[in-house]
Amino acid sequence: MSSEYIVEVSDLKQYFPVRTGLFKKTPLKAVDGVSFKIKHGETLGLVGESGCGKTTVGRSLLHLYKPTAGEVKVEGTTVTPQNIGSMRSKMQMVFQDPYSSLNPRMTVEDIIGEPFDVHKLYSNKKERREKILELMELVGLNAEHATRYVHEFSGGQRQRIGIARALAVNPKFIVCDEPVSALDVSIQAQILNMFEDLQAKLKVAYLFIAHDLLVVRHISNRIAVMYLGKIIEIADSDELNSNPVHPYTISLLSAVPIPDPKTARSRQRIVLEGDVPSPLNMPSGCAFRTRCKYATEQCKEQCPSLTDRGNNHFVACWNK
């Protein structure tokens, strides 16, 4: 069974029990009913502020946390705790911090080769080595780097190692969790270009999680905006940027510092008041209503769900 979509997520929930008293535990709703689909070879950007649950979504997809509820389908097969081992040969992850996500005691060769070992993808040592060198070339590392340890590399090179490791099993879908935020601007561009090249070559789909909206806009076909565990707006990249609808998306876009002095001087920033509410003590109804200037009684009582506004643009808001 093959469908248009590589990944289908429906009503994914991830709650973490948090101790709030001696015997009391309150569920922290990190992700609260998220649904989306990603096509073959597509990039879906996922943006939001820290604590909105964007990283948790990525991790729950791969069962790095056991999801509380909801269903994740990859190539039509539902991911369960039983089959996750083999499913991870279809989906992989690239982590934010290239310093802590690579084992300092392993050589580059062993780091990239580990997925081969786990999924038994080679018949002899020679084949393993060849495959590793092939991957290293693919991500722009020299063959002579194979026997080195991670501490000998710069941030950008480390991220290349992390990407090579993710590509080892030839996945069709990669979750990229803030893969360029720890890198300098000039190196960031190298890695972003590499993501694009790899996608063109290997037809891999990305869930690209980041907080830098300029980067997300550059790399994504579609963008989903999250606020406190829910997707509040999802649309094609250009559509979202030129025609944002949700008040949160509008203020988020206007808050992005623009690297162009003339534009920066002329535009009007919409500065949101206050901070994000605690996810342990979420407001009733729409989670954004405490910072929203359009909030009404209805927002207090009912939580809006994503509705189609045409042009492949979905928004969860009562008033807009």
């Binding site: 710069s154 090179q157 000039s186 561009a189 694009e196 690297p259 162009d260």
Partner: peptide, 19 residues
């Protein structure tokens, strides 16, 4: 090496090499 602000998906031109 920074993405274009107009939102065009023009390929970035990174600075090669390492710091």
């Amino acid at each position: 090496s920074i993405p274009d602000i107009s939102g065009s998906k023009k390929r970035l031109t990174p600075i090669s090499g390492t710091p």
